[in-house]
Amino acid sequence: MSRAKSWLPGLLLVSPSIVLIAVFVYGLIGQNIWVSLNTSVNPVTDKVVNPGGYQNYTQLLGSADYQHALWNLLVLTVVFMVGTMFFGLLWAVLLEKGVNGEGVFRSVYLYPMAVSFIAAGVVWRWLLSPATGDGAVGLNQLLNKMGLPQLENSWWSADSKFSMAAMAIPAVWQLSGYVMALFLAGFRGISEDQREAARIDGASEWQIYRHVLFPQLSPIALSALIILGHMSMKMFDLIYSIAGPNSYKASVPATLMWTQMFAQNDRVAAAVNATILLAIVAVVVVPYLIYTNKTETERD
């Protein structure tokens, strides 16, 4: 009885959230997977759209359009993560040195995050306009006026396998400030004594960063990578507002899902797509969760 007293209030306290998560997260994931295995028939043409079972998955994964979308997602994710981490870390290192007016710079770098993806997308659609030469607007016009017309290009509309890299520019612009804030908090959490000790031992400035500061930031870097990674995989609003509803060049699984669900009226294919995305995210996130769990138990 006395043992029950010790765990019962705790369990009661968390049980509402356990139930809610069980129903609304795992229950709905289950429902989604169930839908993805259904057979469906087009009511207008009476043709079988999804044969049902695992064949739904082989059908979608085998389609050239979906492979194109997955490739775009890979390009986007790599460029977005590398770019954001690079600029975030660079700005954090610069600000960490204690420049004048640090507050101003911090706000300037963080501001893009306060803009919604949709609003930013409307502006970037114009900035990334593919027209060059006399008709150029946005970034191309800027390059033109700076006397660098050879740098003008068609951005994400270009006929290249890697055009999706341009779509990462607005995303990098928006989230670098956030990564900077994470790293800056990390730098501030490291006591000044350690640097002084390293200096007394004769370490150069680079050696202090390389061997004293950066190793202590690795948990932050890992969380930042996970956050950026899953944001990039579900990125829809920015791409949709830049490229419109039916863009082939800019299609990723998330925009394709919208098309499948609302334009094609094909719930099953959208559910298959959602399940595949979930699996991709899980491949990234689950090892991270296991790793954090392990390090936290070790710390206890």
């Binding site: 270009a158 055009s163 509803p245 060049k249 098309t259 009226n265």
Partner: peptide
């Protein structure tokens, strides 16, 4: 054409615009 068909035609036109 239905919305679904229209979507497929639009995607094809979008693809053509890039690759010609």
């Amino acid at each position: 054409v239905s919305l679904a068909w229209n979507t497929d035609i639009s995607t094809a036109i979008s693809k053509f615009y890039a690759g010609r």
